[in-house]
Each structure stands twice: as C-alpha cells, then as structure tokens.
C-alpha cells in the first residue's frame, strides 16, 4: 500500500516536473494577465498613478460616448464581412486547382504560398507601392482597360478595399488546410459520379463541398477570429487614415493603451473584443448544422 502510494506520488512529481515551465506560463503569462486586465477594465490607469476603480465608466464611455470606437468597429466589421467570405472562396478555388495531378505543381504551390510565409510588414510595404495611384501596377492595369484607377490608400472610400486586396493575397494557410481536406476525399465518390455523368462543376458542388464542410467551418471560424484582430497591414499602409477611414479595432486599442496610455480604457476595449469574438464563435457552432461529419457526430 505504501509502495503504491509512493509510486503514485513519484509519477505525479515527475509529471509536474515535465509540465512545470508550461504551467507557470499558463498562470503567469495568460491567466494572471487575463484577470488583471479584467480588473483594469474597471479602472482609470495611466501607469504613473495607481489604478483607480471607476466601475463601469469605461464600458459606458466606449459604448455611448466614443464615436471613434464605433467608427473602428464598423470598419472592422466591413473588413471581416468582405474579406472572410472572399478569402474562403478564393482559397477553395486555388486548392481545387492545386489538387490536380499535373506536373510542375510544386512550383505553383510555392507561388501561392509565398505571401503567407513572408513578413507582414514587408507585404504591406510592397502593396503600398503596388497600390500607388500614379505609378503602381494595379492602376496601370486598370489604365490599360481604359479605367481611371482610384487613389486607393489616399481615398477614404477606397483605402479599405485596398487593404482587403492584401488580405486576399495572403490565403496560403487556408489553401493548405483545404488541400489537406481535399486529399482525404475518397476517390470512389468521384468515380461513381462520373459513371452517372456528372461534370467537374457538379462533382465539386455535390461531393467535394459537403465532404469537406468541416474544413470550411474550421477556416471560417479561424478566419473570423483572425480578421477581427487585423493590425500590421493597417498600421503600415494607412495608420488608420485617411480621416479614420481604415481605423480598425486593434489599431484603436493600440492607440488608446500605448499612445495615450489609457490602460484601463484599453483593457475594457480588449474585453469587448474578446466578448465579440467568443460570441461569434459560439454562434457559428450553434448554426453549424450544415457541416457534414462523416459517420454522424
């Protein structure tokens, strides 16, 4: 009995030893900061003087007295609403093309994947130049077709579409996830459909899409979570301008917390963001009846 207990004890000890560093990480770099950020969101705090508890004032001010917050919120919803569906569609089409068994595929995969592996800051810089109204290649192509291109990042109406273009270019991760799903679709299904005379388009519509719907779902959830936190591109390309036309949620949070040192206000913003993301994720799971799981759920 004593021996058994001591063996159990030793296993526990060794186990804790293995996970010690990570457990410390969970408590000191995640849960602890999470709790203190929650507390700070009810405080006025500028780093220099100690935090002062002010109840729900931050939340009240954000929701009812802060025009720029609502501007940032609407801009972010615009960015998410346009870029997420387009990226899903785009990534899916590219994945279908890349799934063909033809020669030279490694080359094509590399090209489609490169924008995703390289630094976001460099990508944003390249695109600022690509979208240059007078000398950029986009307007040059438009010009070729007789269209006068817009001022893109300099025009409040076109700055956000410009940023969304960059997001469309960085779909490599989603493509790879779709590809891995496509490669798991059993070929018998396609063969059966071919015997029934189904064309390429119908085969994908009726076989591929239902079978990889879990992957669609995964990409959708991750896509929404990530797009809601868009920052690098916006910071480099427009810094929120012109006239706050591209100020997005995290950009505004960054400015409040680290430019104006309103740490309490910033924490409240962070918690509202967290709440929005959680709600969206839960909603998606609730309405995920369209997802097909092989062998039931």
């Amino acid at each position: 009995m004593r021996l058994l207990r001591s063996k159990k004890f030793r296993i526990n000890l060794v186990g804790y030893g293995f996970v010690l560093l990570s457990a410390l990480g969970i408590f000191f770099f995640n849960l602890g900061p999470m709790l203190s950020s929650f507390y700070l969101s009810f405080c006025n705090y500028d780093i220099i003087t100690p935090p002062k508890f002010i109840g729900l004032t931050n939340f009240y001010n954000i929701l009812f007295n802060d025009k720029i917050f609502w501007k940032a919120f609407v801009n972010t919803v615009y960015y998410v609403g346009v870029s997420v569906p387009l990226r899903l569609l785009f990534a899916f089409l590219i994945a279908i093309l890349l799934n063909q068994k033809i020669r030279g595929m490694g080359f094509y995969r590399t090209i489609f994947y490169l924008p995703t592996v390289t630094s976001g800051v460099a990508m944003a810089l390249i695109w600022t130049w690509v979208l240059n109204p007078s000398f950029g290649i986009i307007n040059m192509v438009l010009n070729f077709f007789g269209i006068q291109g817009p001022a893109w990042l300099g025009d409040p109406k076109w700055a956000m579409p410009g940023i969304i273009l960059v997001a469309l270019w960085q779909v490599g991760t989603q493509v790879v996830i779709f590809l891995s799903g496509l490669q798991n679709v059993p070929t018998q299904f396609y063969e059966a459909a071919e015997i029934d005379g189904a064309g390429s388009f119908r085969k994908h519509l009726f076989i591929t899409i239902p079978l990889i719907s879990p992957i669609f779902f995964f990409n959708l959830v991750i896509g929404i979570i990530q797009s809601f936190q868009v920052f690098d591109k916006v910071y480099i390309m427009t810094a929120g301008g012109p006239a706050n036309a591209t100020i997005v949620y995290v950009m505004y949070l960054y400015e409040k917390a680290f430019t104006w040192l309103q740490m309490g206000y910033g924490s409240a913003l962070a918690w509202i963001l967290f709440f929005i993301i959680m709600m969206l994720t839960l909603l998606q799971f609730k309405f995920s009846k369209w997802v097909y799981y092989e062998g039931g759920r």
């Binding site: 969970i26 770099f29 995640n30 849960l31 602890g32 900061p33 999470m34 203190s36 950020s37 700070l40 780093i47 979570i225 936190q229 995290v250 949070l253 917390a257 680290f258 740490m263 910033g266 924490s267 913003l269 962070a270 918690w271 963001l273 967290f274 993301i277 959680m278 994720t281």
Partner: peptide
C-alpha cells in the same frame, strides 16, 4: 483555453509587468 485568448487581452498587463 489559452489558444482562444486574444493576445490583446493580455498585452496590457504584460506590458505593466
């Protein structure tokens, strides 16, 4: 669970620490 936590939530306290 920590994977679900957006980094914006923890960044302010981490900065203070």
């Amino acid at each position: 669970g920590t994977m679900m936590l957006p980094s914006q939530v923890t960044i302010i306290p981490l900065f203070i620490i």
